[in-house]
Amino acid sequence: MTGSAVDVDFAQLQFSKNDWGQLVLTLPDGAVHAGVEPIRCFPLSDPDRTISIVDADGHELVNLPTLAVLNPSAHDLVHRELTEREFMPTIQRIVTTSAPSPPCRWDVETDRGMTSFQLESEDDIRKLGPSGAVVADANGIRYLLPDINQLDAASQRTIRRLI
C-alpha cells in the first residue's frame, strides 16, 4: 500500500531545504521525509494541476490538486524545485534546418538562448492540443512549442510540413 495521504490539510505541509540541497517535507503528523520530489502528473496537457510529491523511493506522499493550496513559503520552494528539475526550452524561432525533412539538424532560438539539435524522425514531433507541439531531439531533450500559430511564417512552414 502506498502512503497516499488523502485527507491532508495541504496548508499544513511544511517544506524546507536541507544542507544537501534536498527538499524536505514535514507532514502535519510530524513525519519528516528528506529528498522528496515534486512531479507533475500531466506535464504536457495540464502542467499546473495534480502535482505529486513522492519520497526518495518514488512512493507518493501527497497529491496536490494545484500548487495554490500550499502556504506561500511552501509554494515558492516547491515551485523552484519544479523549475529546477525541468528542462524544456520553448522554441521561439526555427532559424535554419539542414534538410527539409528528418533526419536533420535544427538551429533554433529558445527562451533559454540559441541552440542546435539533431531531429531523428518526424515521429519525434508530437502534437499537443490543437496548435501546440513537443519536439524531442536525438538525446531525448524536449523542446516545447506552445502555439505554432504564434511563430513567424518560415518557422510555421517548417513545422507544419512535419506534423
Binding site: 502506498t2 497516499s4 512531479i39 507533475r40 502528473c41 500531466f42 506535464p43 504536457l44 496537457s45 495534480t50 505529486s52 513522492v54 518514488g58 512512493h59 507518493e60 497529491n63 531525448g140 524536449r142
Partner: peptide, 22 residues
C-alpha cells in the same frame, strides 16, 4: 484516471516516466 491508476498500483511507476500521464 489517477484514482483508477492508484487502485491498479500503476500510479507510482507512471510518475517516474518522463511525461507522467502524458
Amino acid at each position: 484516471v489517477i484514482n483508477a491508476a492508484k487502485a491498479a498500483r500503476a500510479h507510482e511507476f507512471i510518475l517516474q516516466l518522463a511525461d507522467g500521464y502524458d
